[in-house]
Each structure stands twice: as structure tokens, then as C-alpha cells.
Write a protein that binds this DNA or RNA. Structure first.
Lengths: 141, 141
DNA sequence: TTTGTTGTAATGTCAACGGTTACATTATAT
DNA sequence: ATATAATGTAACCGTTGACATTACAACAAA
């Protein structure tokens, strides 16, 4: 079970818009050929990123441009924007038997630890900004 | 996208075997009625836990019993045992375009951060043992 | 040899993902 | 105004993985 590639696609898309946007018109076709997916997938991604206020997309004339400061966009923001996980990361079996001492208390015993694990992951994602990625990318390019 | 409930089912199963095993014969039917899933699901779970050396399962006569010390079983051990995630937690889009400066470097820029997030989650799971859960459960029961 | 149980294969259902086609809508240039 | 090039979206498909369930062979003990 893996976290959907919508996430890495969205990060790739943002990097393209923020870094290459000065030089090229960032159409869904352009980005799609960089990411190597169908342009419609990119349009869906752009639509989410736009709804989150990160970018602007021009209908008709075409092209996506940055709106939000790259320092104010974390990987966690992107992660939530493209709905990688809704609510709990861990799927819990439903309806454990309340007649059984284990079934009755399994949530009380386990929930907080699962939440801690999820929080640890999310905090790591919060610690990285798009600006961080851009700095590293500019060195490599 | 969520992590399969096989994980919480396996933890529930282990707690049942370790805590209730002294008092009852822990058959797949018994555990299944506590977890509230089909007995075959529990047999598959028991099979994995047995392969990991945590428990013993008696074919024919029936019943599962603890083998490994509860202090030596972490949530992470269970997590890997039931194959919640194989390899990377994050799905990466395949074949980003190497002709594009972003596509060429996206892995170099992103991989380490994704790995860090995954490690943070796994470390949290490593910090909790079955014995910890049993202590808490014994207080509640 | 009967009974209760495990081990496992096979099948079905369902949801999510990603790919793709199609087309209405929109902006711009000529 | 019209042609052109893009976006926005709905619709549909194929694949995959999860989980449930049925079926039955293998097995151990009374």
C-alpha cells in the first residue's frame, strides 16, 4: 500500500512552474512531457494546486504561474492538497467485538501510537519547503 | 490511500494470543470473533506471524501460542511482517523526462526527503513494543 | 474414525488510481 | 470574426489490491 503518485507529480509540477516558468509558458502539455504522464493528469493537478492558492492557471491563453511564495509552501501542504490521505493514514478494522476484553480496548491501546507515527511523518513533510527544493534544484541544473 | 488494516488486525491478534492465551484456546474462530473478520483472514494473519517467529500455531488440534518475548516485538516488526508497505511508502511517478532539467533532477531533489518522512514514521513504530500495549491493556481490562 | 482445526487455493466484490477520449469553454492573435 | 491553442471536466476503461467468502485437503487428538 503506497501513497499515490499524485503527490510526487504535484511537487514536480510546482518545481516546473516555479523554476522554468520564467523561461517557458508552462502548459499542461509541457509539464506532462516533463513528468511523463497524460496532460489531463497534469490539468487535474494544476486544478488542485490552483484551488489551494499556490498557482494561477490561465484558461484559454494557457500557462500556469506562481502565486504563493515558495517559502510558504511545504511538502505537507502539497500532500494535503492532492488528497494523498484523508484523515487517518492507518486503516483500522471496523467493529472489533466489545464483548471481548481485547476488542473492547484495542482502540484505547493502539490509536495514540498510530496517530504519533502519522504525526512524525507529517512533521517531516512540514519541515521541507518548495524553496528548499528549488535551491537544491538550481545547484543541480 | 491508507495503510491496510492487516496491520491493526495483526496487532489485535497478537494481543489476543498473548493476553487471553493463558485462559482460552486461541483458535482462528475465537480471534475472528474478537476482531470481527472472517476466520480465514485470521488464519492468514497467524500464518504471517508464525513465519516471523512470533507465535506457534498447532495444525489439527488448533490454537496459537506466544513464542517471542513481547518486549522483543515492536509495532514496526508487525508492520513489516504483514507487508503493509513494500519498499517505499511514497509512490513515485515513473520515467520523468531526463531531457528536462526538472525531470532529470527530481529524484535527486525529492528522494531523501521522502525517505526521511518514511523513516520518521517507522521509528515511531519501532518505539512501541507489544509489551507496552499489554501493560496498558491489562490496566483497562 | 470422528471431530475440530489449520492451511491454502480459488473466486467475487469493491474502491482507488491512473490513462485516455471527447468536447465545451475561453483567451489571444491575425 | 475567426482561427488557434489552451484549459476544465465529465465519462469511461483497465488494472490492481484489499477484504470476504467458499471449499476442501491435511492434520492431530479423543
Amino acid at each position: 500500500m503506497k501513497i499515490t503518485s499524485r503527490f510526487t507529480v504535484a511537487v514536480h509540477t510546482l518545481l516546473a512552474v516555479y523554476v522554468l516558468g520564467k523561461e517557458y509558458k508552462m502548459t499542461s502539455d509541457f509539464i506532462a512531457s516533463s513528468v511523463n504522464v497524460n496532460p489531463v493528469v497534469i490539468r487535474r493537478t494544476l486544478s488542485s494546486l490552483k484551488a489551494a492558492g499556490m498557482i494561477e492557471v490561465k484558461a484559454g491563453s494557457g500557462g500556469a504561474t506562481p502565486i504563493k511564495d515558495a517559502d510558504d509552501i511545504t511538502l505537507y501542504d502539497v500532500y494535503t492538497t492532492v488528497d494523498c490521505v484523508e484523515g487517518n493514514l492507518f486503516n483500522f478494522h471496523e467493529n472489533p467485538n466489545p464483548e471481548c476484553p481485547v476488542g473492547k480496548n484495542i482502540h484505547a491501546v493502539l490509536d495514540s501510537h498510530l496517530a504519533d507515527a502519522q504525526t512524525a511523518l507529517e512533521n517531516e513533510l512540514k519541515s521541507v519547503t518548495l524553496a528548499d527544493l528549488m535551491k537544491r534544484l538550481n545547484i543541480l541544473m
